[in-house]
Design a binder for these strands. Structure first.
Lengths: 128, 128
DNA sequence: CGGAATCCTCATTGATACTG
DNA sequence: CAGTATCAATGAGGATTCCG
């Protein structure tokens, strides 16, 4: 996670980098954030449509997830003054910068899913 | 998370990709895995040294985390027949492939940490 | 439509003590 | 040294109900 060039990284460098990555992971590594972000890639979306897009999410968790993403500046919330009220969510510019790194992880997961599955069943059979 | 070329992705594509990414995130998005992986990048390491490297981790969680990483084929556990026993952990080839995507997220976290901090304090002051 | 509030459950984690 | 076993606490998440 550290070690630029060929020099040994200091422990402090490591700690700071691990902090950074852990912060990001706790932001998007929860149960729903990536699903929500993934849905919003397609474009702005309203609350109930988002709810259908992210199948399985409860109303509580959708609201909570959106609030946290909004708080971190990754998602923008727009209230349109209609009756009944219309609320639209979309990725911010900052939110869009997250797409690439997430996609990288997604590709990794894709590429190695079978190796992981095999490693698992092998481990499980060894353990009884 | 999908949308290759310019064609609209199907919902099924999206779901599958979100599944993949969620699986990866639940594997490494827990409280300790990234710390452990980050420490093992430097090379093989024994249990107690790892424990000191990942400061704050309990014995229980270190063992648990290592088991899960081993199960998924990301970490290799070697028992050296000495007295007292010596156990060495290291990343597998598969484990090493994870370094790059993790580093990408790490860089993202670094690059935008201030924007996120500002977004947060702005949001919090708006909310009271 | 787009939530907020409440209650409840279960999974994750930590602390502690013990062991080959 | 490198764990295992047990228990207690914390907190994320789901279900339900109510609201402007």
């Amino acid at each position: 996670m550290s070690g630029r060039h060929h020099s040994r990284p200091t422990g402090a460098d490591e700690d700071r980098e691990c902090q950074d990555i852990r912060e990001t992971l706790s932001r998007i590594g929860d149960k729903w954030s990536v699903h929500v972000i993934g849905s919003l890639i397609e474009g702005p979306m309203r609350y109930n449509r988002l709810r259908r897009a992210v199948s399985g999410i409860s109303q509580r968790m959708l609201t909570l997830t959106l609030r946290l993403l909004e708080r971190d500046g990754l998602v923008k919330r727009d209230v349109l003054h209609t009756a009944p009220p219309t609320v639209e969510y979309q990725l911010t510019a900052l939110g869009e910068t997250l797409i690439e790194p997430i996609r990288a992880l997604s590709h990794w997961a894709r590429e190695y899913r079978h190796e992981i599955r095999d490693a698992r069943s092998s481990f499980d059979s060894r353990s009884g």
